[in-house]
């Protein structure tokens, strides 16, 4: 920039953002980690005759060793084994809740966007209203009403996370509606329902899929937070939040390994999921910033 012919300008870093390194750099490790986690979480419980609830007080509170790689908890349960099951529960909750909220959000957003007018205005105002309640608090209210359980947690996540999908779908539908191919379909005699299902929805599908993927880490986080507060899954169930909650007590007597492993596993998995969806988003929409709002 502004290099003079007779005297090169000193090198300055005040330049535009350097182009991101090739997507492979993020995609490969993320995919590898996620694949490894998925295989472990899905396959291991099928073949291993081990019980993650197996209590052996004789080996309680043992630090990591060759027999128990991540140590044992206060009831002598193997932390690594419980982590695998916990991740399985957390990811299941995350995926199921994300899919439900994506479907609900798509339905609301598509209706608001395609009907328009006062309906759209009212629906989006309601969405704004719900969005201004902090997610976790609303989730806590819902769990309080339904009492803590697996389905209550899933419902609580789904009811607080559909707003994003609804907003995305609505704005996509609004911009698609002005395109000539929609006019062509209407002129060709397509009913409102046909336009919606045959022309609008297939075109918002990629965005919705991406939003769903991005929702998974957030849903997992939500489940973990609820369980940590004692408002999530039943206490004996292995979930990341429950494990960290249990580990709180052991921490006071020096048992650091009980909370370290579940937390690290959660971070690695979350990073892998957002790494993959980040690459995907850049491909869908190269101008959008990857750094924000994963």
């Amino acid at each position: 920039m502004a290099d003079l012919l007779w005297r090169p300008a000193p090198r300055s870093r005040l330049t535009a953002a350097s182009p991101p390194r090739s997507p492979k750099w993020r995609l490969l490790p993320s995919a590898l980690i996620l694949g490894l986690v998925a295989v472990t979480v899905l396959v291991v419980p099928l073949f291993v005759e081990l019980n993650e609830q197996y209590v052996d007080l004789a080996i309680a509170n043992q630090p990591p060793s060759a027999a128990h790689l991540f140590g044992t908890d206060e009831l002598g349960r193997d932390v690594l084994l419980r982590c695998v099951y916990a991740l399985r529960v957390s990811l299941t909750v995350g995926v199921v809740a994300a899919v439900i909220s994506a479907i609900a959000g798509t339905a609301v957003g598509a209706l608001a966007g395609s009907i328009g007018g006062w309906f759209d205005r009212i629906v989006m105002r309601v969405v704004d209203a719900i969005a201004s309640v902090p997610h976790l608090l609303l989730g806590i209210v819902i769990v309080a009403i339904l009492r803590p359980s697996l389905s209550a947690v899933i419902i609580s996540i789904a009811l607080t996370h559909w707003l994003t999908a609804a907003r995305i779908v609505r704005s996509e539908v609004l911009s698609l509606r002005t395109r000539p191919f929609i006019d062509a379909a209407i002129v060709g005699g397509a009913s409102r329902f046909q336009v919606l299902t045959r022309h609008l929805l297939p075109n918002v599908a990629p965005q919705v899929l991406l939003a769903t993927t991005l929702m998974v880490p957030h849903a997992v986080w939500h489940e973990t937070a609820l369980s940590f507060l004692g408002l999530g899954l039943p206490p004996h169930a292995a979930s990341i939040g429950n494990m960290i909650n249990d580990a709180q007590r052991s921490l006071l007597i020096g048992g650091w390994w009980m909370s370290l492993a579940p937390g690290l596993l959660l971070i690695i998995t979350t990073l892998a999921v957002s790494g993959i969806s980040g690459v995907w988003r850049d491909r869908l929409n190269p101008k959008r910033r990857t750094e924000l709002t994963w």
């Binding site: 880490p217 986080w221 973990t224 937070a225 940590f228 990341i240 960290i244 909370s259 579940p262 937390g263 959660l266 971070i267 979350t270 990073l271 957002s274 994963w294």
Partner: peptide
């Protein structure tokens, strides 16, 4: 840090 749960 974004990925780490705050209570952890």
């Amino acid at each position: 840090l974004e990925a780490a749960p705050v209570f952890w």
